[in-house]
Design a protein around this nucleic acid. Structure first.
Lengths: 119, 119
DNA sequence: CCGTTGATTCCAGAATACTCGAAATATGGA
DNA sequence: TCCATATTTCGAGTATTCTGGAATCAACGG
């Protein structure tokens, strides 16, 4: 993931309504939820919700599948992992073992590199 | 971490300059970097940079330590982890084991009922 | 004290994002 | 076909955020 995509993803989640939508879909699990259901659950007008769904889709955070008249939205959890990977990939100049406190819930690419000095 | 804090953190990172600052500090590792060094490296006016440092501090993403005339900033990596935890804590209604196969195409139960959107 | 340098605050203009009503589009049933 | 429902697009008003110059504050050396 490169900077532009990461920025899109972070921007998408950095908004109250969209964060609520995303969390709702995460909680819903692989089955997801219909757009109308989310609108009703969160008390957001459908027109506003549509705007936010679009943002989340562009950020690759959710996916919509047409099912008859309805659209079923699901959260794409792996995008979050990608963002975390992006944020930590340059960690300590490529020596993530120095960044102990961060435990990414995914197997991290074991990048081995020479230690560099700074001070 | 609760919603407000998560929103603050995500908003802080969802900005080009701040994301660059944060990544710069992540790469710098525990030693961090001086404010002026970051300003020069990223080509950002000190007044603008100060504004963004403040945002990042409020979001608990960086920490500044006065050292003589200079201020040394370091990235607080564990905050990222807290956000990820927040985003996934409600995963599948509290059954995270269901979230494992993210890429699996979900089975689509035929929804043919009129006013029923549940499942 | 001064003068210098690093960093922040103040402020206003510019740019961007959010909201939601009305209208348009899409789908399926009668 | 016509109708009902779900969702999106359009558009304009509102709100928020970003930027950077000028002024200010803080720390040091002389």
């Amino acid at each position: 993931m490169e900077t532009k995509a990461a920025l899109r993803t972070l921007s998408a989640l950095a908004q109250e309504t969209r964060l609520a939508i995303y969390r709702y879909l995460v909680e819903a699990g692989p089955a997801g939820a219909f757009a109308g259901t989310v609108a009703e659950a969160l008390g957001v007008p459908s027109t506003t919700l549509s705007f936010h769904f679009k943002e989340l889709s562009n950020a690759d955070l959710v996916e919509g599948q047409q099912q008859g008249t309805y659209i079923r939205y699901t959260a794409k959890l792996d995008t979050i992992q990608a963002v975390v990977g992006y944020l930590t990939e340059t960690c300590c100049g490529g020596n993530p073992e120095m960044c102990a406190p961060v435990a990414v819930p995914l197997p991290m690419p074991a990048v081995k590199r020479k230690a560099s000095r700074q001070q």
